[in-house]
Design a protein around this nucleic acid. Structure first.
Lengths: 222, 222
DNA sequence: ATCGTATCTTCTGCCGACAATTAACAGTTT
DNA sequence: AAACTGTTAATTGTCGGCAGAAGATACGAT
């Protein structure tokens, strides 16, 4: 039995295609469809109660976004990322996150300031307690706050896309780029640059942060 | 009458959908379909001799790539970029190009080295002669060489996408981000960093270069 | 003359069906 | 038993058609 998430009756404002796209993306990101799996058109269309037309349109969009791969006459497959793919994505993410840091430093508001300070403090505590379950969502929110607060919608959108895309990498546990204390030390440096409203330093510390995360991931993989 | 570019009979290896997508992208980038224009499904399907199904799939892909906008029950429209859109794209391009510079500095080959040196020399001449027609393609090739030589396929692909996307900006003439001599001075600095195999300096000079181009564009627009 | 309204036309959204291709299977041969 | 080959089943690619929404047009009221 499928979960009731599969419902897409909310359609009337958004198109059926985009609703289907969201559903398929959910199936992929949540792991119901794993890397390499084929998206059976008939089966999925039946499951969501639509015809194959809109479903095919949705998969074409997902293909353009890099979540699936279409092979003519053979079908649509969830993309599999090699290590070198993961490196490429990480590097692009690095550049985008550096941009986020720079832009945020240029338009820092007290609201975001307080939020980031609080998050770093909480992460400090979680780090001391070695409480990964507490640390992980805080870390996520810290990055989201920076990316979302930078005021560049395109960058934020693309950044989010790449974060999602990393879930297609086989070694899921390694995505995080672990290292609690190390990571939060870097957060403090980033925060310092942001509080100082120093775009260049913010850009460089943010760049370094993701680059370090990449290195931690790589040393864990190899 | 349509040009004979419209032919897509080469299909047997690639899908009809992707061939259509390429054709539509061509129509947009070459300007036959300008910003704000509607893509009439029936008309385009007839023109390319297909049914509406594959055509719709192609437009969904173009939508995901940001070239067109789909409005439910109203149609597909070529995207119009506002100035703030252009700024966002420029900033993302800046970050990606900085990444290109860094990566290239890390894996610089003598082949690319010679190519870049030659291009800068030729641009120097064109700059002295104020020969914009000669300068423009050299400048383009200079940037392509850097982006293509960096060894990150994803970054190269995305960078190219954004360059194309800038064509949707109304003020086409301003895309270039002019300023011949100024621009080539920056090229020399970038080249220096690359020849020195200095990733950080390469990253920073490349970042600054696109950022300056953005500023030149903005001061020309406002 | 202008505005609002009703009608008609055009176009999109979605579906079901058929053709073409690929994958699965069984039978045969070596 | 493994490899090859012919046949069947499953799946994708493409098409044409119908319902419904948006847009255009014509008409009438003020």
């Amino acid at each position: 039995m499928h979960s009731d998430h599969d419902d897409l009756s909310i359609i009337r404002t958004v198109s059926l295609t985009s609703a289907l796209e969201r559903q398929l993306e959910r199936l992929i990101v949540e792991g119901e469809l794993g890397p390499g799996d084929r998206l059976n058109e008939i089966q999925l269309a039946t499951r969501f109660g639509t015809s194959r037309g809109p479903l095919r349109e949705a998969t074409r969009s997902l293909e353009a976004k890099g979540f699936v791969e279409v092979i003519r006459n053979r079908g649509v497959f969830v993309r599999q990322l090699s290590i070198s793919d993961a490196i490429e994505i990480y590097d692009v993410r690095t550049a985008l996150f550096a941009l986020a840091g720079k832009l945020l430093a240029e338009r820092m508001s007290t609201g975001i300031e307080h939020m980031l300070v609080e998050l770093v403090e909480k992460m400090e505590i979680a780090s001391r307690d070695a409480d990964l379950d507490a640390y992980y969502p805080l870390n996520l929110k810290f990055h989201d706050t920076i990316v979302g607060g930078a005021g560049n919608e395109l960058m934020a959108q693309e950044y989010l896309r790449y974060v999602k895309k990393m879930h297609l990498f086989r070694q899921k546990s390694l995505i995080q780029g672990g290292g609690l204390e190390v990571s939060n030390e870097e957060h403090k440096e980033m925060l310092e640059a942001l509080l100082a409203r120093d775009p260049i330093r913010a850009r460089d510390t943010h760049w370094q942060h993701v680059e370090n995360a990449k290195q931690r991931m790589l040393s864990a993989v190899t």
